[in-house]
Nucleic acid binder design. Structure first.
Lengths: 367, 367
DNA sequence: TTGAAAGCGCTAACAT
DNA sequence: ATGTTAGCGCTTTCAA
């Protein structure tokens, strides 16, 4: 308004009509010059683009969305943006979306089901599809959402909903194998959230892999999947010593190491520890954390690509799910089992509830 | 289409017209029943809301945006989503936006000016404002952007553009003071990216604070502001020993510690190290990193709130900038200076270029 | 308060 | 290949 202020208001967006008038053609012709398939290449189209360029014309995505019912936006809902696990996932999703000319609407559920629900509810009308990463929602709630817009879930498997997960089974097998090769005869699994599909999967996978290496396994938990949770777990471990632990995820593992250290128990001297995910910090701590590396970035990009496919195809391909390979990254937190303590695991094996826990974890999975 | 598939397509969104018809009123009346200020409270309005509820009607944000020229979306452009520094910032921004009923469009510049430019270009038409966090763009480029849409920059100061920055001066003073109190007489500043406004600011602040504590300071760098950069810096430090270093940010500091350790130099035994930001990982490494804690979350939320204010006010308040307080978090990476080595810093002081570097850093700042 | 009508900027038939 | 005509779903004058 005020002449002194170079405010935004003065920048009246140029429309298709401005271009049409300037180029002496009909508006629809301008629209065509910018339309999708292979772009029109007539002489006029070229001239129109020229004129548009000069006028600084940008097609208005919102208007386009309204008339095409395609917003070219994707929602990425994560359970907690501050969780380092998601950094790479977000990045992968963002990159894949950008490649396809899509924009990412990020929403943080802040570990709250209520907030997640609300976020989804609000995002739905403006997006063409949704990636749910680490959703707190129930399977049926998610299935409900996927009835309204294409959905791909990350790190979780739900019947009838496309998903992208790391190869938990292989990962746990690799971890177990590694520990066995170091002479460990028994392993303690430090569990994550009770409601986590991934946790159940990992535990079950460990149970299955154990016999092949004559490993005895037990399980403690559930714990909150963060550093404090791990510290808590360390407490429990102190009361029930083991020589080797596999944690649900890296943060838990890091917490365990810290908690153990605080009690004078050395890693890997006294206890070997393995995490899962290979987050940024797992390389920074000392000892470096041996961990099952999940392809975080790829998980994000794959989920997004699948979502895009779903959108394009109008939801044909029913089961567009993917299992991504994992890789064991050996760092300093695992070592040969000390021969000194002869039977560190005796008497602590066969914790009741293992079988039940293994069974419980199947509710969600079709894989 | 196929009856077997519970596809998304069948869920034809209910519109204002559907509600209008069902309620026996005109569409505009329905619109009013949902309009902003204080909401209409007539009997009819109440009934309309009732009907809408039953029909599962949700107002279409895109259509609303088209007609009101307000999308209720904000763009948050970060230089690198994978950088842990941004986790909290994103979270803060996201929360503040959600509070105001706004949605966040996250875009990752992937440390590329070209990509950042493109991302902004694409986001501009769909958003009501933009938060630029750690932008790689030139001051003038940013000023250009801010002519089109309200902009708030984070961690940087630009004339005429609202900004949110941590109190770098105070932070560096606290750090210097802490080191001085531990008996250190000379400090090496490990610099971040040359183009970083924050880096210049921090170095200059350190220079200013030094005399008050009879501290001698020198500067090495620039280094890439990540862990590898810090490792590189450690190399340089090995050739020019000091007893104390302050790094541009935590990741650099962590790299320094690791690099030093690899060379058998102990932290804090031989060298004390201080970082900046207080990212998640700084607490996890050992020794814990003493660091100047920047209010990451608050930076994100404040920037967003200011942006919202700007949007609402139609860009009145010219200088809506904020300087957020910092806090020194003392952990294990700093300690009393060893008395053994008598003059560790002698001969390495007064590196040429310090003054020039201090001068160079002023180009951007108005504060 | 409510209804009628016009229009936001764009795309999508349908003509020509 | 280009022009014409309708909308997409919502808000917003302007009347009633």
């Amino acid at each position: 308004m005020e002449p002194t202020e170079a405010g935004h208001r003065e920048h009246r967006a140029t429309t298709i009509y401005d271009v049409a008038k300037a180029a002496g053609v009909a508006p629809s012709t301008v629209s065509r010059a910018f339309s999708r398939p292979g772009r029109v290449n007539s002489e006029t189209a070229e001239r129109i683009r020229q004129v548009a360029e000069e006028l600084g014309y940008r097609t208005n995505p919102l208007a386009r969305a309204l008339s095409t019912a395609r917003s070219h936006m994707l929602a990425l809902v994560v359970s907690d943006v501050a969780n380092p696990f998601y950094s790479e996932v977000i990045r992968g999703a963002q990159a894949a979306a950008a490649d396809a000319g899509f924009t990412v609407l990020l929403t943080d559920a802040q570990e709250s089901e209520r907030l997640e629900r609300a976020a989804i509810e609000r995002a739905i009308p403006s997006v063409d599809g949704i990636v749910l990463a680490g959703s707190r929602l129930s399977d049926s709630a998610i299935r409900m959402v996927s009835k309204q817009k294409p959905v791909v879930v990350l790190n979780r498997a739900i019947v009838d909903v496309p998903s992208v997960v790391p190869d938990n089974a292989r990962g746990m097998r690799q971890a177990a194998e590694h520990l066995a090769s170091l002479g460990h005869g028994s392993i303690t699994y430090v569990a994550g959230p009770e409601a986590s599909w991934a946790d159940g999967m990992r535990w079950r996978s460990l149970l299955e892999a154990a016999p092949d290496h004559s490993l005895r396994v037990r399980r403690i938990g559930p714990f909150s999947p963060d550093v404090p949770g791990g510290v808590q777990a360390a407490e429990v471990l102190t009361r029930n010593p083991t020589s080797a632990v596999i944690a649900y995820n890296d943060q838990l593992a890091i917490g365990v190491i810290r908690g153990l250290a605080a009690r004078g128990i050395r890693v890997p001297g006294d206890v070997s520890v393995i995490g899962f995910d290979n987050i940024f910090a797992s390389e920074l701590i000392s000892p470096g954390l041996t961990t099952v590396a999940a392809p975080l970035y790829t998980e994000g990009s794959t989920a997004t690509k699948h979502l895009l496919t779903l959108i394009e195809s109008g939801r044909r391909q029913q089961s567009l799910s993917a299992v991504l390979p994992t890789l064991l990254v050996v760092r300093g937190s695992t070592a040969q089992r000390k021969r000194k303590r002869t039977s560190p695991a005796s008497g602590t094996n066969s914790i009741p509830g293992s079988a039940a826990a293994a069974a419980r974890s199947t509710s969600a999975g079709s894989r």
